[in-house]
Design a protein around this nucleic acid. Structure first.
Length: 366
DNA sequence: TGCACTAAC
DNA sequence: GCAGGTTAGTGCA
């Protein structure tokens, strides 16, 4: 329900339909199994924290160590650069509607192989959303129109969008077809726009240009680093634009009431773990940093604390790190049991993988 | 290094 | 009857 466009939905009804359709399925059983594993993990975490608290000397020492680390992170905060995150609204569905306006009047979903990838906002009102199996989506919305994705077309539109954005930052970093990050600092400086009003003006200008050239709306976040810009782009979806002024108290006030799940990189599992420790908002991660430190690895602790302070990278990735690192092929199939069937399956997959690796000019390393 | 798991689109 | 595909990364044995 954290996804945009779901605020007017009858959640109780939606949950009932999903539960009805789910129970007994292999998928559901697997989910239950994984949920139990997470619950066990949480139990162990809670026990570890209890042990730690019981040892006052150790707890105090850890507390001060953690506070020292927090100071370190706070020194990393920088308001020197400005990033814009652009996120196209319901992208695949929007392209389908652009090419066939009639789709804009009906509940529409784009999907294949039994899974919905994206939906327009009419469909979202019935609780239909990305990642949902089509048979459940149909139960929620019997008039739902489902079309197969046309990736060639989406790529075309995506390229057009990125061409527009490269006027502001030639080193644009993209994530998927519908999202991109640009560092607009130089553009702002050159045009004497590097102040609150100027930044907001630029964000709106980008949105306007994209809409005029593509007839598709987007949501934009503009802030002092990539992560903040991304969080903000989601804040007023769809067709929205959010900016937070570069003042420490403004950033902290925003993070204070921000649900942890809104932080990119915190998914279902980490959310569950933190919720069980009584942590729901970003500010609580900082308040309870000692417990976080004990619970997670050092790496995850640093990620969580930095993110919840609103601190993240504000310079471009090394281009070498942006090159593709791996390639894989996977698909789902009905249960099989005979050895020759497995052998055949693996052969098919391997041949497909080989084919793609050759086209991409990849060699196997191991 | 290989595998399980998490996360994102 | 019916629950995807692809890439990146972490953590552990």
């Amino acid at each position: 329900a954290h996804k945009a466009g779901l605020d007017k939905v009858d959640k109780e009804h939606v949950n009932k339909v999903i539960t009805e359709a789910s129970k007994g399925s292999a998928y559901y059983k697997n989910q239950q199994y994984r949920l139990r594993a997470i619950k066990n993990k949480i139990k162990r975490f809670k026990y570890r924290i209890k042990q730690f608290r019981a040892n006052t000397v150790l707890w105090t020492k850890t507390y001060h160590d953690v506070q020292r680390r927090l100071m370190w992170f706070k020194n990393e905060r920088s308001f020197k650069r400005t990033w814009v995150h652009v996120d196209m609204d319901m992208f695949y569905a929007a392209v389908e509607i652009k090419d066939n306006p009639a789709f804009g009047e009906v509940p529409l979903a784009v999907g294949e192989r039994g899974i919905i990838q994206t939906t327009n906002y009419i469909a979202r009102q019935s609780g239909v959303r990305s990642g949902m199996p089509t048979f459940i989506a149909k139960k929620l919305c019997d008039k739902l129109t489902i079309v197969r994705p046309n990736y060639v077309r989406y790529q075309e539109i995506s390229d057009e969008m990125k061409t527009i954005l490269r006027e502001y930052d030639p080193d644009l970093e993209s994530c998927g077809l519908d999202e991109a990050n640009i560092d607009v600092t130089e553009f702002l400086m050159k045009n004497n726009l590097n102040h609150a009003m100027g930044r907001l003006w630029l964000a709106q200008r980008i949105r306007k240009t994209i809409f005029e050239r593509l007839e598709i709306t987007c949501s934009v976040g503009i802030s002092c680093n990539k992560m903040m810009a991304k969080i903000l782009s989601d804040f007023e979806k769809p067709d929205g634009c959010t900016y937070i002024d570069y003042k420490l108290e403004r950033v902290l006030a925003f993070m204070k009431d921000l649900p942890i799940r809104k932080v990119p990189g915190i998914g279902k599992v980490i959310e569950q773990i933190l919720n069980n420790l009584g942590i729901f908002y970003c500010s609580q991660v900082i308040e309870r940093a000692t417990e976080i430190f004990i619970t997670f690895t050092e790496h995850t602790f640093e990620f969580l604390v930095r993110a919840c302070l609103g601190i993240s990278r504000n310079v471009h990735e090394d281009p070498r790190d942006l090159l593709q690192k791996s390639l894989s092929v996977s698909n789902s199939f009905k249960p099989i049991s005979r050895f020759d069937q497995f052998k055949e399956k693996i052969k098919e997959q391997a041949e497909e993988l080989e084919h793609r690796a050759r086209s991409a000019g990849f060699k196997g390393r191991s």
